[in-house]
Amino acid sequence: MSSSIKIPATPELHYLLRLSDTCLILGQRLGEWCGHAPILEEDIALSNMALDLIGQSRALLTLAGQRSGEGYDEDQLAFLRDEIDYRNPTLAELPRGDFAFTVLRNVILSTWLKLMWERLHDSSDAELAAIAGKALKEARYHQQHAADWAVRLGDGTDESRRRCEAALATLWLYTPELFEDDAVDAAATAAGLGPAWSQLREPWLAEISEILGEATLAIPGEAAFRSSGKRGLHSEHMGYLLVEMQYLQRSYPGGAW
């Protein structure tokens, strides 16, 4: 099983994949910190969050495989999908950067995921609602952990502040993608599957403003740039990430692991 699988272009499937891939790709990035964090407690915390995110992605990919009508399992979807069929917003795939970059990306995405899981808990799809119920507890902890560090770093030393500002300036460019709707969102809301991503914007901004306020960090202005990972058009970083992640499955066709 080393050649790529084809993904049916149904809005429901894309809605699930956008979320599963956000969890998987962010988990992949957080896993890179293992053994390299600033203190041992953070090696453990970041690995633990990666583990939660991979777990969430597994549940979602399994569900997506069932809904695809193709009988794909979680590993076929994770390891045999081509880059253009990956649907995470670009923000999740950006290289891990320094610790400020990782922390602030976690603030942005854990808040977004928490709000998403809260809403998906009421999904018309009972399985998705059940996944959301478990994931919500994890996302709350992730948000708290990231927010605590954002405050320490934003209101720490001149250097930590400078690094936070630089990280935020880059990260912020990729946040509009988290709140733009298209036909996938329209179909999901019509079916009661989950919220349109735009519905998360207001509560997200309120929570982010509070966290960044406590961290004494200013919210950057909006730029004209728009990322497009959730439509399959990723940054240059994504190809390298997938090559690394998928290499064993691609190199050992028919293998059992």
Binding site: G31, E32, C34, S47, L51, D75, Y247, L248
Partner: peptide, 22 residues
């Protein structure tokens, strides 16, 4: 960790290396 061949093995490895940190 980043190259584990399945998501199950990736999870097991992450948990294991995390245990070592513990």
């Amino acid at each position: 960790i980043t190259r584990a061949p399945t998501l199950k093995r990736k999870s097991i490895l992450l948990a294991k290396v995390q245990d070592e940190g513990g």
